[in-house]
Amino acid sequence: MKSEAEVKQTLRDWIIKAAGGKISQEQLQNDTPIIEERIITSLQIMDLILQLEKITGKPLDVEQLKPGVFRNIDSIYENFCGENGDEN
């Protein structure tokens, strides 16, 4: 398992690529609301889920997701990779 900083950097790189020029590395912070600000769309979440499964090595059940888990990099890390990761 990668360190917290490495996982967040992997997520940041994925978001920058998926956003297709909507935001730069410098602009994207760990608390930037990526859905609310339409940096990524709901249709891209499927790819993000695959990315998270690859990082954590754990399957993710969409039907069990709590609202707001994809709000920003911090919440994604906390809900899927951090101490609460097994709850989702």
């Binding site: 859905i35 709901s42 979440i45 889920i49 695959l50 399957p59 993710l60 059940d61 969409v62 039907e63």
Partner: peptide, 10 residues
């Protein structure tokens, strides 16, 4: 197989 598609209300 599980679903990975998600629609966020708007």
């Amino acid at each position: 197989y599980r679903n990975r598609k998600l629609e966020i209300p708007r």
